[in-house]
């Protein structure tokens, strides 16, 4: 009894998730359109060149929002008819806290690489990422850290001659 109500709740939350994603996807289009029309999107007009550069983007944004609204309406209708309809993709539920934590660590790593180069952020954030990913073995974690951290840095910089970003130009960090 509890299991079936849990499954039903999960299906409702998945349906709500789909609705939220559809709504967010539709909202993105008017945002770009408004930004463009208000001149906030950095969309210069070159009148001397007989400007047509904004025509296609605007048409695409209108198509995007129109199709998105119809799809959102369809999703909403389906949701209100059967909120606990099973997911057609039959996927299992993700752990939201874990996903958000992994996403936050990955975003942090990517942003930190912009400011501090590859080596410093990877040394600091990769162990956290491995831990969040579910690595519990200390030996395995150290080997994975050495391969994916300093190992890849060495492979790309010295082995393949492709320089990864560094804090000090030409240095390891």
């Amino acid at each position: 009894m509890t299991d079936s109500s849990d499954t039903s709740d999960e299906q409702v939350s998945r349906s709500i998730g789909r609705l939220i994603v559809s709504a967010a996807f539709v909202v993105a289009s008017p945002f770009f359109l408004a930004a463009s029309l208000l001149g906030a999107a950095g969309s210069d007009m070159n009148i001397a060149a007989g400007d047509t550069s904004q025509a296609l983007p605007h048409i695409l944004l209108v198509v995007w929002v129109a199709l998105g609204l119809v799809d959102l309406f369809r999703e909403a209708t389906t949701f209100f008819r059967a909120p606990a309809a099973p997911d057609s993709q039959g996927r299992s539920d993700d752990d939201p806290v874990l996903v958000l934590a992994i996403m936050a660590a990955t975003v942090g790593l990517a942003v930190a690489i912009v400011f501090f180069g590859y080596m410093v952020p990877i040394v600091l954030i990769l162990p956290l990422l491995l831990r969040l990913a579910g690595v519990r073995s200390l030996g395995g974690g150290i080997v994975a850290f050495l391969i994916l951290g300093p190992g890849l840095w060495w492979l790309f910089n010295d082995g393949l001659g492709i320089r990864l970003p560094a804090l000090l130009s030409g240095g390891m960090f």
Partner: peptide, 15 residues
Amino acid sequence: LIGTDPVTGAARFTF
């Protein structure tokens, strides 16, 4: 289409 328009050179959606 984000970036520089190849015909007019105008910036598009670069914010």
